[in-house]
Computed example of a mutant assay.
Amino acid sequence: MAFYDLSKADRITLVAKINGYLEKAVTGGRYKNCLRYFNDPDTYIRKTAYLAVGRLYIAKPELQAAVLKTLEQLLPHNSFYVRQTVVNAAGEIGKNDFEVVQSFFDNGLFDAHHAVRNAVIGSVKKMGEVNPEPVLQWAKQYLHHEDKEIRREICHGIELRGRKHPLDILPMLKELEFDKTARVRNTLVHVLGQIAYKKGCLAIVLAHLKTWKNPEVVAGALEEIIDVHDRYKDFAVLTQDEARTMVAAYFER
């Protein structure tokens, strides 16, 4: 039975069971036992597993070495479910202690399966939001990687930090304005739009775009910014007309 087919009471019981089971597996050095939940086809079971491991690392410092060893042993597994769950668990740890899990992201970025690479993006988002300095420093080294997908994934991964602290990532995004790959530039435009509709961000984004030199990327970003204020009108701080007026004030459109 899938996780959300269970009643709320049964879900609580199952979460407690998974927490206890994984702690016992880590403590006893039986990393293969973790596969029971790390390799479950249910997304929410795997999520419960990686959250459990992340909490275990934070709550019990005496088990930190064992947690990391467990994840290291599971990372090469042939199941992408397992590798995805390992990366997500590392992301939970990296919110507080990025340096000890950096290698998981160095590996995950180049994983053959998109689900694992997506787990890297998601983890960079959540880590960058609360532990930005080491995460963004790590991300910078891949901004100009020869693989276009790596550049695109890094661009996407730093997005969440920009929604509250746009100036932390706008200089990094600017480095991609002349990227030769349309897919990377499209992601760049998307990320700029996702930042711009958040509270207090539009003016900062527009002022920064004034310093950019690629007119096609800037034009695409402005179109996206105006459009996103309609697509996300229930969440945007400004109306689309207000956003359009502000864009015109900066760019005399």
Rank of each mutant, 00 (worst) to 15 (best):
5 D>L: 08
5 D>P: 00
11 R>L: 08
12 I>M: 15
16 A>Y: 09
17 K>E: 12
19 N>T: 04
20 G>V: 04
22 L>I: 08
23 E>V: 08
33 N>I: 07
37 Y>D: 03
37 Y>T: 01
39 N>R: 11
39 N>V: 03
42 D>Q: 10
42 D>I: 05
44 Y>D: 13
47 K>V: 01
48 T>L: 08
48 T>H: 10
52 A>L: 13
55 R>M: 07
56 L>P: 03
57 Y>M: 09
58 I>Y: 09
64 Q>D: 11
65 A>V: 06
65 A>C: 07
65 A>H: 09
66 A>C: 11
67 V>I: 06
73 Q>D: 09
82 V>R: 03
84 Q>K: 15
84 Q>F: 06
94 G>S: 09
94 G>K: 10
99 E>C: 08
99 E>I: 09
100 V>I: 15
105 F>H: 07
108 G>N: 01
109 L>V: 04
112 A>H: 06
120 V>N: 06
120 V>W: 02
121 I>E: 03
127 M>V: 04
129 E>A: 14
132 P>I: 07
133 E>V: 12
135 V>Y: 04
135 V>T: 08
137 Q>N: 14
138 W>N: 06
138 W>L: 06
139 A>T: 06
149 E>D: 15
154 I>Y: 01
155 C>N: 12
158 I>G: 00
173 L>F: 04
182 A>C: 10
187 T>M: 13
191 V>W: 09
193 G>I: 03
197 Y>G: 07
200 G>Y: 10
201 C>R: 07
202 L>Y: 08
202 L>I: 12
204 I>Y: 00
211 T>L: 13
211 T>K: 14
213 K>V: 12
219 A>P: 00
221 A>K: 02
223 E>R: 14
223 E>Y: 12
225 I>M: 11
236 A>V: 06
237 V>N: 00
237 V>T: 10
244 R>L: 11
248 A>D: 13
250 Y>E: 02
253 R>S: 08
